[in-house]
Write a protein that binds this DNA or RNA. Structure first.
Lengths: 325, 325
DNA sequence: ATGAAAGCGCTAACAG
DNA sequence: CTGTTAGCGCTTTCAT
């Protein structure tokens, strides 16, 4: 690998001059500039960005933390982040944590070690305080609302979204309402439970824990749940499923086990993924791509000016009416 | 940002000793090691990986080149690469090209500039020779078969896969067979045309150019095509659609425009994405995740030992029978 | 306009 | 066992 020194030597100039040519500085005599250019091309020399990064303290890279990557939810966010990052010439470094705190810590560390200029966290298992402690080294944007830290955040109003979904079901005459979520412990799940409880109570309805199905992430999970519902003595007649793929699974399972949709089981999905269009699934679109885009912009703005305050930005959701309710 | 020098100073040792502690070298007196450890923790010091990368000439990062990221095809590959990369402690740098040669070149450049240890190219617009020229700087793996270069490759036998799909349709009595592809110019599209031509000719059938639909990538593209087919005077009665989401679009469009499936229009999708399961779409699974996984391994093996020869690895496909044929 | 030299933060001989 | 020193490849004063 040829370096700047060798180029300088071959061109008969100093490394500074080569550097100037490389960075389009003025104050280089035309003929020297010419000569250097030539030597550079002859050797198809390219500067070592590690070295440049080291000096500039910048990498033009943002780290995207996610638990795993085989779920359309994350892909929608990835696509949004990528789209925006591409505009500004940034790269996206995918950092998979599998919800492992050590792994998550290690990636946050990359901020301290300048491997990335900032972090966008789609998932989080570390305490807020710890997350926040890393933000001295660069902008951190989370995709989750919290009062507990003043990190920048882009998020969905999960409470409101869930309320509106439940209300929609109520308006359509369903009273035996349940829901499926991913991880029970996540912040959004807690919001959703609050929404569930409050909306039901407001309607004079009771909460049945058996109608709350956690660990519903993939299509197969949805199918299993439909199977269980088909055999419950007191089954829900409507379900909000946080994730269209899982919702699709419920739908398929329901068909398989003889449940008519929406007569016997109404379903509202989440995320407006293509599969929901395919199955005519009513769904709540939380605009994941936009969340990704905004997350990048928030990072970017702060990376330009570290003094601006962290921003919390709520992204609107929309209920897309189709035929599963 | 505290650095190794300051740690050394505070601990009253030399930077080498700190370095040794950092890298778990033997030959450090226990008490000094202890002291250094403490100072490190007090300052929550973390080494600057830019600097380490600079010295080691390694980044533990592989660049993944793709044209865009809002398509499930790439997500499946990403997921496969990530899964494997995670095992070996590697990161994945997403590099979006939008099929722009300059952009692609720039990313390849990152190999020369040591920003990544290797490249996995899901898409390619540059000539093979140019791609290959970068491979001096590190392993390049492409997800496409070619004789024109001796880069490592992980690929599907597109010819065979298409033949078997067409044969399947023939076996089911369809003779008016067409197909939908993405970019007409891609290598795989050419393979597919060959397969189409040969299989049809072998069956004594003719090739109709009007039954070949290019630029069919997203769901909406599929819907449009179904619309066109519904109004064609001499429409195909069976279609292979390279991509389940697009195939789903065809299916939906067909329903919308009154075409019964599979009686009036048989459909074979591609990739065995969840949506195909959801719609009971017969599909050809080219095992994209496995392609991603293998691509990473190929990169990894060569990164350990640059002398081993490039490998071409074919990933088997499977026709998944469901109800759209 | 140009070059010498001092780093960026770290590792790795080398010499004790 | 430990410190000194010379880089890794580049940018950026500071002289000239």
């Amino acid at each position: 690998m040829v370096n700047i020194k060798q180029i300088a030597q071959q061109a008969g100039v100093s490394v500074s001059t080569v550097s100037r040519v490389l960075n389009n500085h003025p104050y280089v005599r035309a003929d020297k500039r010419e000569r250097v250019q030539q030597v550079i091309e002859q050797n198809s020399y390219t500067p070592n960005s590690q070295a440049i990064n080291l000096i500039r303290g910048k990498t033009k890279t943002v780290g995207l933390i996610l638990p795993f990557s085989h779920h359309p939810y994350y892909h929608a966010i990835i696509a949004g982040v990528m789209e925006e990052a591409y505009q500004y010439g940034y790269h996206v470094l995918l950092c998979q944590t599998s919800y492992n705190p050590d792994q998550e810590r290690e990636y946050l560390h990359m901020l301290s070690t300048r491997q990335v200029d900032g972090i966008i966290a789609c998932s989080r298992v570390l305490p807020w305080a710890e997350l926040q402690s890393y933000s001295d080294s660069g902008p951190i944007v989370v995709c989750e609302y919290t009062e507990e830290s003043n990190l920048s955040a882009v998020y969905t109003d999960h409470y409101g979204a869930f309320c509106s979904g439940i209300q929609y079901l109520l308006d359509h005459g369903y009273t035996r309402i349940g829901y499926c979520i991913g991880r029970k412990t996540s912040a959004s799940s807690q919001e959703r439970f609050r929404a569930y409880q409050n909306t039901l109570h407001a309607a004079g309805l009771e909460v049945y824990q058996e109608w709350i199905f956690p660990d519903c992430i993939h299509m197969s999970d949805g199918e299993q749940i439909a199977k269980r519902i088909a055999t419950m003595e007191s089954p829900p007649s409507a379900l909000i499923v946080t994730g269209d793929e899982a919702a699709a699974g419920v739908m398929l399972g329901a068909r398989q086990y003889g449940l008519r949709i929406p007569e016997q089981l109404a379903i509202i999905g989440y995320d407006n993924q293509p599969i929901s269009a395919g199955l005519q699934l009513t769904t709540i679109d939380q605009n994941l791509q936009e969340i990704g885009r905004q997350a990048f912009s928030l990072f970017y703005e702060r990376s330009l000016d570290a003094t601006i305050m962290p921003v919390k930005r709520q992204i609107p959701y929309t209920l897309i009416e189709r035929h599963s309710v």
